[in-house]
Design a protein around this nucleic acid. Structure first.
Lengths: 130, 130
DNA sequence: TTCTAATTGCAAATAACTTGCATTTAGAGA
DNA sequence: TCTCTAAATGCAAGTTATTTGCAATTAGAA
């Protein structure tokens, strides 16, 4: 969190009440949240503010967006260097992090300069399979 | 295409003029299309019809959706057994298919029953890098 | 050919996203 | 600490995307 706050300052952005709330909410969440979910958990923060802040932070590389092919994007803090991926249980709604990275493979395969990527899985978790 | 049409019959669905158009458009496209793009290429087909058909076909496993973290989902025919992935060039807009499959790896890693997944890359293609 | 349930197309509703602008506020400098 | 200004906020209103309702049409089974 301290790292994030100093990164925000470095970027010339202000640290405000709603921004702190948004970062806290994301920091305390173990899964990516939609903008509406962040708003709900922020208690009082305006939708537009959250919306704009999340877009801004994403564009600055503080947040990443993920998408489970439903309507809304979900956002999470980027804590490490690598971009985490997720698996969603269709049955219980649980979202877990996936320790897997194939970006190097794709880079070699395609010769593209990769600037972003997403990789999401949807399934039934071991508990729900029973 | 014949395979798809018979699959539609098997599912107890009717083969109609707009449905043929949608399948043709997707079959002739080398990249996933948004619903609006399909409507435009279908010449005269109603948006709602395309919308509903695409959702229906997706739910039946005839189409897959992909998402490049822009607003609209994109759809493509599922031709083979494996689910194709894509890489988008941010500069020229080209979308190419990626020959890569990590579903078995994820299945082993998580012990989930995987029912769907997506994997998209965004970058700069070799031509645009120059 | 007849009939019926499936499908379509329009219109209208809902939901998601985005912008404009007056007000407020963080935080740099006095 | 106080002042000041650009950045940020919050409301309202606009735009775009998605979804639903329903009467009219149509595929294809009988």
């Amino acid at each position: 969190m301290e790292k994030l706050l100093s990164r925000i300052k470095e970027l010339g952005l202000k640290i405000t009440v709603p921004r702190r709330q948004i970062l806290n909410v994301l920091n305390e969440s173990n899964k990516p949240l939609t903008i509406s979910e962040i708003v709900n958990k922020c208690g009082g923060a305006d939708f537009t503010t959250v919306f704009r802040t999340v877009k801004l932070f994403s564009s600055k590389g503080l947040l990443q967006s993920t998408n489970f092919n439903d309507k809304q994007l979900r956002y999470s803090l980027i804590k490490k260097d690598n971009h985490p991926h997720h698996i969603l249980c269709k049955n219980c709604g649980k979202i877990e992090e996936l320790e897997i990275c194939i970006i190097d493979k794709v880079r070699k395969l395609t010769d593209y300069r990769i600037v972003d990527h997403s990789m999401e899985f949807i399934g039934i978790c071991p508990e729900c399979k029973k």
